[in-house]
Amino acid sequence: METRRDFLRTAVVAAATATLGEVALGAASKIPSPDRRGILCDLTACIGCRSCEAACRKEHGLSSVSSLSELGRSNVPERRRPSPDALTVVNEYKHPNGAGSPTFVKVQCMHCDYPACESACIVGAISKKESGPVLWDTDKCIGCRYCMVACPFQIPSFQYDTALKPDIVKCDFCVHRTEKGGVPACVEICPVEALTYGRRSALIEIARKRIENYPDRYRDHVYGEFEAGGTSYLYLAKTDFKELEFPSLKREPMPGTSESIQHGIFAYFVPPISLYSLLGGLMWINKNRQKAEEETTE
C-alpha cells in the first residue's frame, strides 16, 4: 500500500521527469474497460422503501440506525445529499399533479467513467478502477477537499465532526463484495429489483430495450449513458431528469477541459521559461537603465 511518503517520493520523481519535457497524460485520456460494471436504477420501479439506505449503513457500519423502522419516512421528502452517515439516500419527488404517485430518487456516487474528483485530487487519492468503481484511498488523502468541489453531483462528503483524522466519505460500489463475485448491498436488498448490477454495456442495452418496449412508461433518456462522459450508475425515469434535480451535463468528460488547459500551459515547460525570461529581461533592462542614470548623475 502506498503511503503519503511514497506519494511525495513519486511526486518529486514526476516533477523531475516533467522538467525533462515529458507531459503526463490526463485522466481523461484513459479509456475505460469495456467490461466495467454498472448499476441500472429504474426509478419507475423504486417504491422509496429505503431498504438500500438501511443495507448500505449496515454494510459499512456507518450508523446505529440501520433498520427500516428506525429510518422511518419523515425525512424522505427532504432534499438530502449523501453524508458521512449515509453513502446513499432516497429522496421523494412529488408528482407534478399532486395526485399521482411520487418518484423516488436514490442518490449516491455515480462512479463516473472520467471522474472529476480523480482529476482534481492533487495527491492521487481517488482512482477509477478497471471494473468500474471510483475509490478513495485514506492513506494518500491530505484532506484538501478539492474532490468535493470538483464533483458535478456533489457526492464526496467530509467528516467535519472528526477532529483528528477526518475521511472523505462516499459510496465505494461495495468493492469488498463485488471482488468476491457478489453484488453491492443496495442491489441485493432491493425488493423490487429497481437496481440491477452487471456489465455497463449490457445494462445500457436493457435500458434501451425497456424504453422501446414501454414508451409510455419511460422517457427516452438513459441518464448516465453519456452524461459527463458516462457514469457507472445509469438511471431510467418517466419524468424529465431535470424535474428530479439531476444536473444537466454535457457529453464531454468533466476533467477534459480543465486538464487540457492545465497540462497545455505547462507543456514542455514553456510558461515558466517564458515567465522567467520575461522577468529576467525586465530586470536586465532596469539594471541597464539604472547604470545609465548613475553615469549621467556622476
Binding site: 453484488v183 425488493p191 429489483e193 440491477t196 452487471g198 449490457a202
Partner: peptide, 20 residues
C-alpha cells in the same frame, strides 16, 4: 435468484417480479 446474480440481467427475479 435476482437478475443481478443470474445470467439474464433483463428479467427481475421472482421476488422482484412479485413485488413490482
Amino acid at each position: 435468484e435476482t437478475s443481478s446474480k443470474s445470467a439474464d440481467l433483463s428479467k427481475p427475479g421472482l421476488k422482484g417480479a412479485y413485488h413490482r
